[in-house]
């Protein structure tokens, strides 16, 4: 059974139909990468899973339970964390306060906090600093750290490398590998090199529908298929 299943999802934003009949299965474990051109519907898919659009048609099941009618906060409490493209941190709060918000009862599990510090040492250094004053990379670290400070079954991450320096991207990739040992990651990424280094399974979305699914290794080896499905994004992100 898939960890997450989306069936026939239709989402319209205003008068524009963004997703039509999108069907996707995300297996448990590892990194599942969603690829696609700009405007294909990748971010909308993640936001729909989190219930951030009003009543999309179709169904979303998580561990066999239909979560499509649940409130966003209830979906988050099911064990799904969302790291949006804009990172979703609270700039007016300190790093510590941002992290406390992501805990279940306002207290840190020491082992998990130690792991966060090990993955993102900068956060320990700037623990009491206002989040707005962090660099872009540090903000992204905080956003991901917040997603893993409590046990989660699934983390949705939207374009984490956007605007980051290559050295930070490398560090982020290592962190994702570590996190994916214990948690499934559904990653939306335009940077194909980064996605290729992490993904176990993948899907390509085009025009609001899944047009290809398979293993990342097979897809990475098939340059003709990449060219056909991702020609625009390959040029931008590779």
């Amino acid at each position: 059974m898939s960890l997450l299943s989306i069936r026939n999802m239709d989402v319209s934003i205003g008068q524009y139909a963004v997703l039509h009949g999108l069907t996707l299965d995300v297996p448990e474990g590892g990194v599942f990468v969603l690829l696609g051109r700009n405007g294909a519907g990748k971010t909308t898919t993640l936001r729909s899973i989190m219930g951030l659009w009003d009543r999309p048609a179709g169904s979303v099941t998580f561990r066999g339970e239909d979560i499509s009618s649940l409130h966003t906060s209830d979906i988050a409490r099911k064990g799904i964390a969302f790291v949006p493209e804009n990172m979703g941190i609270f700039g007016g709060l300190t790093v510590a306060e941002n992290m406390v918000l992501a805990t279940a009862n306002g207290k840190f599990d020491p082992a998990r906090l130690k792991r966060v510090y090990a993955l993102f040492p900068a956060l320990e250094q700037f623990w009491n600093k206002q989040a707005w004053s962090l660099s872009g990379g540090q903000k992204q670290m905080l956003a991901v750290a917040r997603a893993i400070i409590e046990p989660r079954d699934l983390i949705l991450i939207d374009e984490p490398t956007k605007g980051l320096a290559p050295t930070i991207i490398h560090g982020m990739g290592e962190a994702f590998k570590d996190i994916s040992q214990s948690t499934t990651i559904l990653l939306v990424e335009q940077n194909f090199a980064f996605a290729k280094s992490l993904g176990r399974d993948m899907a390509v979305i085009d025009d609001g529908q899944v047009v290809h699914t398979g293993s990342m290794a097979d897809f990475a080896a098939d340059t003709a298929l990449q060219d056909r499905l991702l020609s625009l994004s390959m040029e931008e992100g590779a």
Partner: peptide, 20 residues
């Protein structure tokens, strides 16, 4: 922690919803 949640809501309701 309740005070921190309140400040988070003041800053961005949607983000507060998104983390539960």
């Amino acid at each position: 922690p309740l005070g921190t949640v309140l400040k988070a809501i003041r800053e961005n309701e949607g983000r507060a919803e998104g983390i539960g």
